[in-house]
């Protein structure tokens, strides 16, 4: 007779033999240098997401705000503001996707960088051509899959959530970083 304890033995080989798939593509500092390369220094200026601010961001973006604090830096050169660097996480199929956006002072997207992506499909989300779609977007842009954002096969959930995340951050800029 097969004992129930034998069943987990099925899983052990996969766990043992499976290569670690956790990939950190960029550190925060590396992403900051890519998105605001001319900055002499980055000043952390995290934003407390009060219930009122959450409500306004959610109303403007149509995307739920999950966290109570948003990690934000502003870049400076010779004391002059260059733009914003916002670090964020969204839900992927299995794990959180960590990404960052760089914004010009007027709130338009300079670029987007993927720091961690640990999903089965959709590694193309790091493809510059996919990320380039966000460049120049401002608060109010549709940022909708199959409209102004191209989908990636097998990673629809990830693509949609990154697009929604950027939409939420652009609304946050409009209310809290102008």
């Amino acid at each position: 007779m097969v004992r129930w304890t034998a069943l987990p033995a099925l899983l052990a080989p996969a766990a043992i033999c499976t290569p670690a798939y956790a990939v950190q593509y960029l550190t925060v500092e590396q992403a900051q240098k890519i998105l605001l390369p001319e900055a002499e220094r980055m000043v952390q200026a995290d934003i407390a997401l009060t219930p009122e601010l959450k409500r306004r961001v959610e109303a403007a973006s149509g995307v739920r705000v999950r966290n109570d604090v948003q990690r934000v830096w502003h870049g400076e050169r010779a004391g002059a503001p260059l733009g914003w660097f916002i670090l964020d996480e969204v839900v992927g199929k299995h794990e959180f996707i960590t990404y960052a956006i760089g914004l010009d002072p007027d709130g338009s997207v300079r670029g987007i960088e993927i720091l961690d992506y640990r999903e089965s499909y959709g590694g193309q989300i790091r493809d510059p051509r996919w990320r380039q779609q966000f460049a120049g977007k401002k608060n109010g842009a549709a940022l909708k899959l199959d409209a102004d954002i191209r989908n990636i096969s097998g990673a629809t959930l990830s693509c949609r959530n990154v697009a929604d995340g950027v939409k939420r951050l652009l609304a946050l800029h409009a209310f809290a970083l102008r």
């Binding site: 080989p13 996969a14 043992i16 033999c17 290569p19 798939y21 299995h94 089965s120 499909y121």
Partner: peptide, 12 residues
């Protein structure tokens, strides 16, 4: 079999 097929890839 599971061990042999444990390649880095995907999931559906």
């Amino acid at each position: 079999c599971i061990a042999a097929l444990s390649l880095p890839a995907a999931a559906g």
